[in-house]
């Protein structure tokens, strides 16, 4: 039911785990539904995502979409990261079963939540 790419990202997840010195963190989903994604980003002064990490509670597709999303935003600007769509994640994974599309939506939301957190932290810093 899963593409080889999905199985590869599930077996060898990229950027797995909390990263040192992150300045943005987003967590989406809930345990009741069986999916939680946590995304950590470290953004440098030029607004580039230097490092990224994820932790996921969920099915194979949830792990694979998180892993793929981290690869797709690493080295990008936060503005570009916000443009990441769930469809792009699905395409990069060479497709997902229809019942698993919501996992890719969660991955997109996790990236957005991490960027949002980064921005609110920056705004707080400025106001200090």
């Amino acid at each position: 039911m899963y593409s080889e790419k999905v199985l590869d990202h599930f077996q060898n997840p990229r950027n797995m785990g909390e990263i040192e010195g992150y300045n943005g963190m987003g967590m989406v989903g809930n345990a009741k539904c069986g999916d939680i994604m946590q995304m950590f980003i470290k953004v440098n002064d030029d607004g580039i995502i230097e490092d990224v990490g994820f932790k996921t509670f969920g099915c194979g597709a949830a792990v694979a979409t998180s892993s793929m999303a981290t690869e797709m935003i690493k080295g990008k600007s936060v503005d570009d990261a916000l443009k990441l769509s769930n469809a792009a994640v699905v395409e990069a994974l060479e497709g997902l079963p229809p019942v698993k599309i919501h996992c890719s939506v969660l991955a997109e939301e996790a990236v957005k939540a991490a960027v949002e957190d980064y921005r609110s932290r920056q705004a707080e810093k400025k106001s200090e």
């Binding site: 899963y2 199985l7 599930f10 077996q11 069986g34 999916d35 509670f57 969920g58 099915c59 194979g60 949830a62 792990v63």
Partner: peptide
């Protein structure tokens, strides 16, 4: 606890 069944099955299957 703390992990999800389908990913357990998938990894066992592998």
């Amino acid at each position: 606890k703390y992990i999800e069944g389908e990913s357990i099955l998938l990894m066992l299957d592998l």
